[in-house]
Design a protein around this nucleic acid. Sequence first.
DNA 1: CAAATAATGTAGCAACCGCTACGTAACATG
DNA 2: CATGTTACGTAGCGGTTGCTACATTATTTG
Lengths: 185, 185
Amino acid sequence: MARPKPDRTALLDAMADHVLVHGLNTASLRPLAQAAETSDRMLIYHFGSKEGLVGELLGHLAARMAAGLASALPAARAVTVAGAVGEVVDLMRTSAFQPYARVWLDIVSAAGQGGQVQRAAGQQVIDGFLDFITGRLPEDTPAPEETARLALTLIEGVMVMDAIGHRDTADRAIAALAPQASRGD
Amino acid sequence: MARPKPDRTALLDAMADHVLVHGLNTASLRPLAQAAETSDRMLIYHFGSKEGLVGELLGHLAARMAAGLASALPAARAVTVAGAVGEVVDLMRTSAFQPYARVWLDIVSAAGQGGQVQRAAGQQVIDGFLDFITGRLPEDTPAPEETARLALTLIEGVMVMDAIGHRDTADRAIAALAPQASRGD
DNA sequence: CAAATAATGTAGCAACCGCTACGTAACATG
DNA sequence: CATGTTACGTAGCGGTTGCTACATTATTTG
């Protein structure tokens, strides 16, 4: 009868909290189970395998972050492309979103090593992010699709710079974008 | 005194090759030792601890990549900022440099989780890269320091996009940077 | 040559990893 | 009440982790 998921989302929520604090790539079943107040045995029971668990967990995290983004920064168009980038960067540096940024870099790293689950989840995150950013660009932006991709790629770079402690390099990069993108006003 | 370190660089070279293929964050002592034709025991003997080993290994990798960059793409100024970015991106997508890109994302991920060694090595890499890029910008680039930071941050974003399979997003981002400089790359 | 010192090998510890075999409840249905 | 299905705990397997105590060999030095 197929009542397969009684409280899987509760489990996923608890495990997501754990992963946001302790990282994704170093997470193992027993600590995850402890965070969710279960046993490793039950996690395998519910999700089939660790890979399955990680897959669902990534989807859950992506959904939570997307929802958090939308509610933290309601749709509004920026004056400048660089302004839109700055707004999103400032948000991602918030204590509420910094954990997501760290997990995001974990996902990217694992995807780069060939992790299929992480690659799929990463593409999903990027697609959602592209939509989010497109809606925040100035109304009259030419080639909004390409510009959104430029903005997002730059934001990814900022997250890399922040992670290794080159935040000022990121800030100066955004500043350097301003004169270039304001052409055509 | 006598002979404290006979062939550490040979060990580091062999381990670097292994890491470039199999990743950094998942590397453990015994496979590393096998790659260097020693034992885990000897690695600890030479480097004191795994953390010490990783530290020296990262320094070695950074030096190797910097040397490879300089020799693969001898100093020459590009016509456009976007052109300079494209040249470096094309190089990093080469089969010779893609492994470095993957390890780089490993470093970033670990640094984001608080890895001091990775953070230090990462800053070193960024500084070298900034110099490299600054020398490749068009001669008359205004604010070259800031522009180099913009270019590098964008390149980091491209590496993220590539890792999760959004290479076309990266390409379109670079294209969006171009429009105001003279066309014809 | 002998003693001291450095370099390397052997064997293993204690902890952790993902995962599974197995036993036991709870519960719905005949 | 019997039976079958689902939910969950216990115990542990085989493997890997970083690291170490100890023994042995090689090299230098008095």
